[in-house]
Amino acid sequence: MLRPVLERLGSLTIVMAGVSLLTYGLIFLTPGDPAYTILHEQRGSPPSDAEVEAFRAEHGLDEPFAVQYLSWLTDVLRGDLGTAYTRSESVNVLLVQHLPNTVELALAAMAVSLALAVPVGVVSAVHRDSWIDRTSQLVALLGVSMPNFWLGYLLILLVALSLGLTPTSGSGTLAHLVLPAITLGTGLAAIVTRLVRTSMLEVLDAAYVDTARSKGVRERLVVYKHALRNALIPVVTIVGLQFGFVLSGAVIVEVVFQRPGLGTLLVDAVFARDYPVVQGVVLLTAVAFVLTNQLVDLAYVALDPRIEGGERT
């Protein structure tokens, strides 16, 4: 019982070490000398040698890579992500300011997707190959094939500009959340609908459903009590695994709706070459992503008694 846990922790540590190395190493992809490029970007004019030298010394960029990385990592492990280049705030503060908006959007999008996908998926499975099933599969295909930023602008055009029902951009109230949540939730809903349908079809074929039917349990009860509960187990876990998809989508959706969140923070920092902020956001999303995946794996084991704590590949 202890061995798989230790093995998992071991490989998790290696992955985290690799993630941190990659996150820190990213800035060295900068063409030319990072200090020069960063200063050039910030001022809009070429900096003098003395300025570059001073910037390097201030941010420890004159040290060898290993020294820089280790001192950054030590600070990170102490919970200090450094100070932004372009403003005087600490990265920690910036993350704390921007995180809630992104979490709010991600949760709202997941709620939208489940609210759409579960009923549609179930009805599709129960009425397999009917016109309802075909239509919902077609809509799901459109949903996964649509660029979410495009859908965002269509919704802005239709709901916000033409009908005037919601604000076009910003954040703060529930009205601000509606369009971004639908935009981000649609792609996810399309994926989840297919999952619910497949999972439901599998369960409806299972022996215990036949048993329930042959005992004379009403069809409605068979579908909603016996089948749906079991069909949702894989769905729950896979929705969890889509967390990365939601985070990726949130970046673009936040830009479309000009919502201050981790996505807009990241995009602005990338363009301004504000590397401590970039590293902070990347590290935070990667850690959140890895931990969610681990939790989902655990939840899967907990929900489904047939699975032992073995390794899934």
């Binding site: 990726s248 990338v270 990667a286 992503f289």
Partner: peptide
């Protein structure tokens, strides 16, 4: 371990 778009965005940027 990295959400795909986030890593691609940062590398490209």
């Amino acid at each position: 371990a990295f959400p795909g778009l986030v890593l691609a965005l940062v590398i490209a940027g």
